[in-house]
Design a protein around this nucleic acid. Sequence first.
DNA 1: TTTTTTTATGCAATCGTTGTCGGTAACGTT
DNA 2: AACGTTACCGACAACGATTGCATAAAAAAA
Lengths: 343, 343
Amino acid sequence: MEIITIKDIAKALNLSTSTVSRALRGSYEINPETKRLVMEYAERMNYRPNPIALSLKENRSRSIGVIIPEIANNFFSQAINGMESIAYNRGYHVVISQNHESYERELVSTQYLAQRRVDGLLVSLSGESNDLEHFKELQTKGLPIVFFDRVPQDYITHKVIADNFAGTYEATEHLIKQGFRRIAHLTSPSWLSITYERLEGYKKALQNHDIPIEDSYIKYCSHGGMIFEEVEQAVMELINHPNRPDAVFTAGDRLTTTCMSLIRREGLRIPEDIAIVGFTNLMTADLLNPALSAVRQPAYEMGQLATEFLIDLIEHPKATIRFETKKLDTHLVIRDSSLKATP
Amino acid sequence: MEIITIKDIAKALNLSTSTVSRALRGSYEINPETKRLVMEYAERMNYRPNPIALSLKENRSRSIGVIIPEIANNFFSQAINGMESIAYNRGYHVVISQNHESYERELVSTQYLAQRRVDGLLVSLSGESNDLEHFKELQTKGLPIVFFDRVPQDYITHKVIADNFAGTYEATEHLIKQGFRRIAHLTSPSWLSITYERLEGYKKALQNHDIPIEDSYIKYCSHGGMIFEEVEQAVMELINHPNRPDAVFTAGDRLTTTCMSLIRREGLRIPEDIAIVGFTNLMTADLLNPALSAVRQPAYEMGQLATEFLIDLIEHPKATIRFETKKLDTHLVIRDSSLKATP
DNA sequence: TTTTTTTATGCAATCGTTGTCGGTAACGTT
DNA sequence: AACGTTACCGACAACGATTGCATAAAAAAA
């Protein structure tokens, strides 16, 4: 009926808890007959070791903390899927905490998970984070941290990212080849490395095709699209630009959808007036109006890889000598939103 | 540097651990001066009680398990947001496990969370689940369970659902008022209560408007849209129906998006050939082609309510006399996908 | 038969925290 | 002087499981 402990088994079988414990883990120094008895009884009573007691003893919780901007985002929910697949297989569970693109809440989340004694942290930075002391402090205390997607540049640990440069280069070049010349770039906060890498890909593509870089075409949204007004202002500045862009690259789910809404609200057509390519994992991309060209990140694989890195760090604290930054390929899917209307 | 315990404080201050413990929780039988000393030292050393030790002592983990079909679904990720908001405030954390619409995996998830000693369970059933013994067994062992969204009919506990009947009635009536008469109903597995309630709303709307119910217009997808082929078959049967429906109601995110894709794949236009209303929380509904009319569920609030129910059950195990089923209003947003083209 | 070795088991400490119980002063009351 | 109160504080056990060490009994070697 109730939950059974090792002590109950010991009492029932007239053994000591130590014997039961050893029998259960098949120690060689237990009489095979005793072992059988214990095993059978445990099986029959549906005994399961108390993970909390184990955690206390082993000083580890077998849980890993995940800090992400938000769950309700296709990239992150896919990444979580990847994390859970690995974590589950290796005996860990995943505790998720959101920062909602706020530095304050990232701090709180971090403290919370650390206090909860997670064995390691999987982090994708909030749009506001440039101070990373809270992570550094935990890391020096021995808590392994792996960053993914939104990774800090000057931080020594494992990192997993998409090939933001190549992905953006490819998308921008695609727009150029379609005949667009005035290409805007609507992106995340400037201090994030994804922002930098994507910007570089964008610039490089323009340069390679002899298109001058126009700074007023580049717009940063310091809250990654979470604050509508911010995106609205940026997009309106582009729309009302004296030399209005004929295409725009948008660097995230929210940024993309909000931008599309705004363009339509202003009575402009996609792609005739402004073409668009999004760096996004939206599952409805091909159902949008128009179907959205998108650079997809391998979210699931990124989650898996980051988790493997982290668990390796947790289980072999001294083993790691060189930290790696794994870069995964993105995939450009071309749809209507970026096709030049054939005249 | 390292993590500090009550023992360390006791040693440093030449006190016993009990005194330190009591001082920290402000017991009246501790000298104010001693209290101050302990508090200050604890503060300075950044002491945090070990939640694992507490869990062991109190025989509770302060965590609640959530079992849902999948995270990568707008309804569920919004619901999770609601859960976390409440859980966090009341000192619990949330461990998520997915069943991927499979009974097997629901079993595994349930065992896993139970073995992890969660204090309670928040469940939305998989499309395959009609046997609920695994939940019943845990509940008799004293583990509180609250169901939400996909709730079983004959199970005595708290439940939180959307008003599926009213939502579907409203949506169906809207289609009727637009002038559609051959309205199909593409829905989840027949044994789920949401399926039943929605079907009733659909039928009632038809009846009230003197439209005969055509059974071949009603299609169940036993995996809630997770298996493409299943949806494909259902939709193709509708499209190739001798008396093809002129509108369809779809009962979920995946069902809706897949159905839209298929209609388009077959060269039909929405809403001219087939109109569509979805029971969905898709965030991109207004950006779809065409903009999608949708019945939205208050996912966030449902998550909050379910969590409040659950934590109340956890903290007052005997208090509850009558179990409640809370029904929340849905909200119909009419967009292009269900508008009759004016001739 | 005696001694040594092997086999099988139990005891007790440990992880961090709290509750129970008990003890010791210092003070006030008869 | 004897006793009762009050204010503080510490020892110990407990939560569930593991593990080093001790030890009894049995088997093997002398």
